[in-house]
């Protein structure tokens, strides 16, 4: 105890305590809410919406406005739907840490429960795309890899690169890598069009086609290295670098050894 109290005035003590407190509250809350989950229907939904609203007011409203109507720096969230919230908050993109060119994937700030509550709140404002059910995401069963590849090269490769590694957009923006992205988030991104990404609606790319897309992405992700180290799968740039650094480096090194006199 003495050792602990020694750190009481450490400058990290405050934030640390806060994190502990939050964790404790969160744990209690999720334990409590676990029971709520089983409670049926309308009441639970209203409760979730109310909880989501509280989180929203604390964490989101400073940018998105008190009624989610949007502001100078952030768009309106009316009508974006639960899927959008689930994607943005679930992947940690929102809340944004700083106003950089683009929100990037990071550790989520809110847990699954809070995210669901936020999503419920935003969905209650106006109708929008819902979070897909797990049963609708069985890409292994319902998708086709080859068809997914065709769709990917037609609709995705131009930004995310031929192997889903990501690529550059204008003014410092970029399309992120798709490696390691959960199927649910890929699906949600397709139907909601987060940030620079356009919307791929269900009528133009059907839900079955979306599952094919996901199946192809997952197959590219799982594909072992068939021809040696992949060097990022970003095309000839890294190949050229390797030629000069490793290839020519080795050959010139050996040429130097070859032409020096033995002692």
């Amino acid at each position: 105890m003495k050792r602990l109290s020694r750190y009481r005035r450490h400058k990290a003590a405050g934030p640390l305590l806060l994190i502990f407190a939050l964790l404790a509250i969160g744990t209690t809350f999720s334990v409590a809410s676990a029971t709520v989950k089983s409670a049926p229907t309308a009441f639970a939904r209203t409760a979730a919406i109310e909880e989501g609203k509280q989180i929203f007011l604390k964490g989101c409203s400073s940018c998105h406005g008190l009624n989610a109507q949007g502001g100078a720096v952030a768009p309106s969230l009316i009508g974006v739907g639960a899927a959008s919230v689930d994607f943005q908050v679930g992947t940690g993109r929102m809340p944004m840490a700083d106003m950089s060119t683009q929100a990037m994937r990071k550790k989520p700030v809110y847990d699954a429960q809070e995210t669901a509550a936020l999503a419920a709140y935003v969905a209650s404002l106006a109708p929008g795309p819902a979070v897909p059910e797990d049963s609708a995401l069985n890409y292994q069963r319902d998708g086709s890899t080859a068809e997914g590849g065709e769709l990917f090269r037609n609709n995705c490769a131009m930004c995310h690169n031929f192997a889903g590694q990501g690529g550059a957009l204008t003014e410092g923006k970029y399309a992120p890598t798709l490696m390691g992205v959960e199927p649910k988030y890929i699906y949600e991104a397709l139907i909601t069009g987060p940030q620079s990404m356009p919307v791929f609606s269900d009528k133009t790319i059907t839900p079955a086609e979306k599952l094919s897309l996901i199946k192809w992405i997952k197959s590219a992700e799982a594909e072992p290295n068939l021809g040696g180290a992949t060097m990022g799968r970003i095309g000839p740039v890294t190949e050229g670098l390797l030629v000069w650094i490793l290839g020519m480096g080795l050959l010139i090194g050996i040429a130097v050894w070859l032409t020096t006199r033995a002692r």
């Binding site: 131009m158 290295n225 068939l226 040696g228 095309g235 000839p236 190949e239 390797l242 030629v243 490793l246």
Partner: peptide, 30 residues
């Protein structure tokens, strides 16, 4: 080099059709 480093993994690029494109389409270094 050929044993340890992949070059031009054409199976990932897919067959050519003019309506498709990949981000970062580069020629060889020279």
């Amino acid at each position: 080099l050929s044993a340890v480093a992949s070059i031009n993994p054409i199976w990932l690029y897919g067959p050519y059709t003019p309506g498709q494109i990949s981000a970062g389409s580069q020629p060889d270094w020279y």
